[in-house]
Design a protein around this nucleic acid. Structure first.
Lengths: 199, 199
DNA sequence: TAGATTGTTAATCGATTAACAATC
DNA sequence: TAGATTGTTAATCGATTAACAATC
């Protein structure tokens, strides 16, 4: 969604101390058309003033609210490999109100250790711990072969959304929101687009 | 691009020893419409046989070729944080013919060390080393504040494509292929879609 | 009032789906 | 020949852009 990109741009614009911004300015800043910006924003309400533009702080607040970023979220992380570890230190998580409240892995060497003050638990405990901590979001960073099993456990544990980093198509019921952060696809789009230009 | 997803599905189908597959089967396997599958494939050539379907191995080979995955690619990695480290061990890279041929960072403690047999070099050497090793793809895993500077260096070094993991809109000339792997946007789409369902 | 910029309607564009003739 | 399934054309849908009246 483009709202997310607008939000980021507004953060920067606000930091520069700019008070008011036009759809044209936003459009130029993020690389879309002014009409698109106005359409996107108008869909959620009348945030601007005709002849003037949008109040930066005000608009930003509204977008954050629409994106659900004024809420606090409990996240569980399944799979503590390099990627999982990278996520625990990812600043963007905290900035958006995401709190990693539990970490699961099935490596005995990792179970019982603490990462950022959170104890690593065996994956068998997902169904017990996730509901307990009112966790809404599960991040899957296990190998592709294990991802579906983990997804099933998360669904049973009544998770609301899954952020899947494993390169595999997961099967979850429609009421569970699923996002795939798939590096493979990105790599392939990259080489596909490169295709014509290179040998 | 959906081709990437088809490719993955065909790998699995092939492993099961299936010889021929219909557009309907593929569609069901990856969750799109049969017409879409046929349209996508027909765009690149006539890979199927009417009344029969597609030969799995044959189709897969064709898709790999179209995606540029039968080539070998030289990749440089800039930024050796947790995420950068995760990428060096990412199996999907090697599987697709991506070779990390150089790693750059500006932390003196990291410079000179070896990761997977590749020496970590100072970022100042990008413009020298990248052309030397005929590197086509640059992966940026530095903090957002440094990303544009790195991108500029890569462009000067004549890179063909950039895979950007920093949550920032990069400015590169149109002839450089740019892909953003933006976790922030994914998080925000997630909470946005969750918005209606939750408090 | 004149200039600027929004919100919105209408026109355009592209992508998806439905339908079917071609053909194995 | 009858059944199946492709490749492709036409119909549908949705998203983007252009244009402009409303209004600050």
């Amino acid at each position: 969604m483009r709202l997310s990109v607008y939000s980021r741009y507004l953060t920067e614009v606000d930091r520069r101390g700019i008070i008011t911004i036009s759809s044209g300015d936003i459009a130029e800043g993020v690389g879309v058309s002014p009409a698109q910006v106005r359409k996107d924003l108008a869909y959620f309400g009348e945030f601007g003033i005709r002849g003037v533009g949008y109040n930066v702080k005000d608009l930003h607040r509204n977008i954050l609210r629409i994106l659900g970023l004024s809420n606090e979220w409990s996240v569980c992380l399944v799979g503590l490999g390099n990627l999982g570890l990278a996520l625990t230190t990812y600043r963007g998580f905290r900035e958006r109100g995401f709190h990693i409240t539990s970490i699961f892995d099935n490596d005995p060497a990792k179970i019982g250790t603490f990462v950022n003050g959170v104890e690593v638990l065996p994956v068998e405990m997902i169904e017990e711990v996730v509901p307990q901590r009112h966790t809404q979001i599960g991040a899957i960073t296990v190998p592709a072969s294990a991802a579906q099993t983990i997804a099933d456990k998360l669904v049973k544990a009544n998770i609301k959304a899954i952020l899947n980093f494993a390169p595999v198509v997961l099967n979850v019921p429609p009421e569970v929101e699923l996002r795939n952060v798939d590096l493979s696809v990105n790599l392939e789009v990259l080489t596909f687009n490169l295709g014509g230009k290179m040998a």
